[in-house]
Write a protein that binds this DNA or RNA. Structure first.
Length: 563
RNA sequence: GGCCCCGUAGCUCAGUGGAUAGAGCGCCGACCUCCUAAGUCGGGCGCGCAGGUUCGAUUCCUGCCGGGGCCA
């Protein structure tokens, strides 16, 4: 249950009733506009909740905001709600002050069901497929992939937490020209390793990882180079990308990112789904032949020009396979598709949506979230990330250098559409002061208090006082109040993160929660106080610990018991 | 030339149609006889510029300037 949401809804209802009563009594007349908000004011001095109703409706009521606010206050019936005081303030806000103790209810609420605190049930649950990373199977993942992996992973958890049915997927581009090129490069490296004359294909892959794959292949198939060339090439086109994908999967596993499904492009081709899309376009009169190629009339749906589906040499484009993939997603029954793409793909959004519209799907069922660049530096010097040049920092390098927790947390401290500067040397050198440790430390500190109170290895749940038998209103200091208010806000923060596709909100929530706990901890003792104070503070610490654990868990970051 | 993102404190970045705009880092100073100092407390006249919408704009719209990116 969500205390904030419940209060907002109840207050809003009461205000609407006051409006109706005022109208019935002839005190005001409203034309049209009736929408207003109930919010938690930024300043505690402005009450527990406030509404801009009088400001928003003054025009429609043809009165001054403060006059309307006064009428509303007089007509309000808050009898059963437990509102202690109402005031008109500033330009016409109505501020509500609740009875003491409303905040403290959050403690038993959290303790009763800690693993589900923050969850809610959206009014419009959807079946959502979220696709992300989807790096090429021709090399290791880079830092933008690393960013996408965390963003997608955490967004998926946020969406699930508010009641959507969520599946995650990684699309493997294991067909087409780049795979041919990759296979040819691997073959050349095999020759090199055998000391045979070799020639790297033009535009071939330069990375050291290709040599590594060649080494592994030769170890498993020592006679590979003696195979019949066609058979060898066919084998490499399959085997080489498969090995890269296996490595990607292992790297992501280490990164705590798991996908419900790894979807292979070549399966689409083999199942005939690519051809089927072409046929469907023909049937719908959306495609045409010109210059020996098959074109899709995406320009009818807002694209700047039509796009090629099948090139004049008969080879299907990546675009076509991509459409077939998205159609397949819809056919599997998903209401909404969320794709997370890198900054270099923004030009593809319009044509992809157009292609889906041409198939008869509403364009807004596909949502593309564009990530912005990650700029890597090391000691202030830019680190180049060109795959062609063969020098780039991989996900694996990143995890080796800064660790999983710090990497995940850092990527979650930026909104999707912000460029991200990531200085590796700084992240290592200052690891002690990384925000992730600040948050984890708050958790470890609480664990330590419980060890002190209940003994090493004891389960706090077995020893804590019963929240129903404890007077929690002794938690009345500013620091305790601030902490409680932030605990109460967790469910709405998760909801915002999900609805607005802004997983970074979790990181900022976690930092703020840790900050408020540290402040509380520095100003007050928990153990050794008067028994009723100690009991209440132990419960407050417990609620904080559980919420920290919960938010860190949603971020895929560990919550250590000691540091 | 078209399109996308960004412009908030020294740096990296959050944030909101509302009442006194924040954090981390860096810098200066103070605090461990007291549950972990990976901590706390104090030190900050910053929303690129100009119009517009609005009772109210840092937030929304337009133009300009600056940075980054994609495409032709």
């Amino acid at each position: 249950m969500d205390l904030l949401g419940r209060w907002k809804a109840e207050l809003k209802e009461a205000i609407e009733q006051a409006l109706s009563r005022a109208e019935a009594a002839g005190r005001i007349r409203l034309d049209g506009e009736r929408s207003f908000e109930v919010e938690v004011p930024r300043e505690k001095a402005h009450g527990d909740f406030s509404t801009n109703a009088a400001l928003a409706l003054a025009r429609a009521a043809k009165t001054k905001p403060r006059d309307l606010a006064q009428v509303l206050v007089e007509e309000l019936d808050l009898g059963s709600l437990g509102v202690e005081r109402v005031e008109v303030a500033g330009p016409g806000f109505i501020n509500f002050y609740l009875h003491r103790g409303w905040l403290h209810q959050v403690i038993p609420l959290i303790l009763a069901n800690p693993d589900r605190y923050g969850e809610s049930r959206t009014e419009h649950p959807e079946r959502i497929l979220i696709e992300y990373v989807s790096a090429n199977p021709t090399g290791p993942m880079n830092v933008v992939n690393a960013r996408a992996a965390v963003v997608g992973d955490v967004l998926a958890r946020c969406l699930a937490a508010v009641g959507h049915q969520v599946a995650t997927e990684y699309y493997v581009n294991d067909a087409g020209r780049q795979v041919d090129l990759f296979a040819a490069t691997v073959e050349a490296r095999c020759r090199e390793l055998k000391g045979e004359p070799f020639e790297l294909p033009e535009d071939g892959y330069q990375g050291e990882d290709v040599r590594e794959i060649a080494r592994e292949l030769l170890a498993d198939y020592p006679d590979l180079l003696e195979w019949e060339p066609e058979a060898r090439r066919a084998f490499l086109r399959r085997e080489a990308p498969d090995r890269v994908v296996a490595q990607q999967k292992a790297d992501l596993e280490r990164y705590r990112v798991r996908f419900d499904r790894w979807f292979r492009e070549r399966d689409l081709h083999e199942a005939g789904k690519v051809d089927a899309v072409v046929q469907r376009y023909q049937e719908r009169g959306m495609s045409y032949e010109e210059d020996g190629a098959v074109w899709l009339a995406t320009s009818r749906f807002g694209d700047e020009k039509d796009r090629v589906l099948i090139k004049s040499d008969g080879i299907p484009t990546y675009f076509l396979a991509d459409i077939a993939y998205h159609q397949d997603k819809f056919e599997r029954g998903f209401d909404r598709l969320i794709d997370i793409w890198g900054p270099d793909h923004h030009g593809h959004i319009v044509r992809t949506k157009a292609a889906l519209e041409a198939l008869g799907y509403p364009a807004d069922r596909l949502e593309v979230l564009l990530l912005q660049l990650v700029t890597l530096t090391r000691g202030g010097e830019p680190v180049r990330m060109s795959k062609r040049a063969g020098e780039y920092v991989t996900l694996e390098d990143l995890l080796d250098e800064v660790g999983v927790d710090a990497a995940r947390f850092t990527f979650l401290t930026r909104s999707l559409d912000a460029h991200l500067d990531f200085d590796l040397e700084l992240a290592v050198r200052q690891s002690d002061e990384n925000p992730v440790y600040y948050v984890q430390y708050a958790h470890a500190r609480i664990c330590s208090v419980f060890r002190q109170a209940f003994g090493e290895g004891a389960d706090p749940a077995q020893h804590l006082p019963d929240p129903e038998q404890t007077d929690l209103t002794v938690l009345a200091s500013d620091e305790e109040d601030d902490l409680l208010r932030h605990l109460v806000a967790f469910p709405s923060e998760v909801r915002l993160a999900a609805e607005r596709r802004e997983p970074h909100r979790l990181a900022f929530y976690a930092m703020e929660l840790a900050r408020r706990f540290h402040t509380f901890y520095a100003h007050h003792r928990i153990l050794g106080e008067a028994p009723q104070v100690e009991a209440a503070r132990l419960l407050l610490a417990r609620a904080t610990q559980l919420t920290l654990r919960r938010v860190l868990g949603m971020m895929g970051v560990t919550a250590p018991e000691r540091m």
